[in-house]
Nucleic acid binder design. Sequence first.
DNA 1: GTCTATATGCGGATAGAC
DNA 2: GTCTATCCGCATATAGAC
Lengths: 221, 221
Amino acid sequence: MWDFKYLQSAEKYNEAEMKTRDRILEMTLKLFNEEGVAKVSTNRIADELGMSPGNLYYHFKSKEHLVEWLLRRLESDLTPFMQSGDTLVALDDMWLSLHLSFEVIEKYRFIYTDVDFLLHEFPRCGERIRNMTLSAVETARTVCSNLARSGVLKAEGAEIDDLAFQIVFTSTCWSTFSRLLSQQDASAPGYAAYHVLTLLSPYLVEDQRHYMNYLRGKYLK
Amino acid sequence: MWDFKYLQSAEKYNEAEMKTRDRILEMTLKLFNEEGVAKVSTNRIADELGMSPGNLYYHFKSKEHLVEWLLRRLESDLTPFMQSGDTLVALDDMWLSLHLSFEVIEKYRFIYTDVDFLLHEFPRCGERIRNMTLSAVETARTVCSNLARSGVLKAEGAEIDDLAFQIVFTSTCWSTFSRLLSQQDASAPGYAAYHVLTLLSPYLVEDQRHYMNYLRGKYLK
DNA sequence: GTCTATATGCGGATAGAC
DNA sequence: GTCTATCCGCATATAGAC
């Protein structure tokens, strides 16, 4: 009987805690994306939530932990794409996968626009970002190899390596560059996909290139 | 007679002042590059120079002014390359121009690695960086057009625009990405040139592509 | 030009009451 | 879980003596 009550109250306890934790993480993500990690203080985050700084620190014991948990979320949101390397054999599959992963990246864009700050300020987070990026290169290489094997892509050896590298480079740095070029930047994820497809374009076999130009065109309304 | 003396002393005054100003700017550049604008305080810069904070503020009345003067230097170091668009008709010329401008960019890399912070913290500087980048795109477009006209490059219209855009994107963001991938990063400017040449590669006419692969190869010791 | 001393405020983070 | 109050340190920037 009180077992049940205990469980209930434990559940309630967790639910409430998770709710506050999530509210904090969501506000943190919003502010970090909008104003940058360096400029947004923990006090500021608490303020915007109508919450005391003490309470925020009850849930996350340092600013670094806020970054770390957001990074975990990014990692887990990207996992499906990182594991799909071998299932992508057609251009269509690859395009969809790219497009969806850019939406994830755009959601956590501060990780990329503030990467240099994170590298210096929170080395442990920097290490995670580095590892994530390195395995993204591996995934991209696998995808390109498979596209080449299935005859969609005409590239070999070093060309594939360079291509995979440039795809990840573009994915990683695009938000920084697009924010530099214009303050209002709603269309950023679409253009990232556009530019990655542009990188692939010259290596595609003729008929696939036409199809891809059709896909690319859709990003330029 | 005291006219002369007056001039002399005015000169001395300026020499001394310029020397201190330059020492400050050089140390600032070094520290900003190594640790980021957000992390390096004006007190820290003064400390490293064995100088008082008051003295530093006598020469530069705010942190923003330090950034602004370094930005001016970057702009003036890049000017020759920005104006050379129409004189580059061979691949060789373009390559050399690229290589040299990457050395300049690498020298002021903090401008690029901290661009998002600068955009938020010092909007006036952000505006300058944006304008600089936009005119770099214009220059790149001119260069690509000329290479196409002289038969080195096989590209037209939208392809040239995309290419120019990607060249500037790569130049701008390369240092951020290379720093993400490895802490020790001496070879960064070389690799930036390598990747820009890789972007051009598929659009070059046959014989030029072989020559360019030779150039690219030199970056991979 | 350069220094010492200092104003002023905000940053991250903690203690202890409720 | 949440709040109030607060510690401590460092940041930018200035005043005024030398």
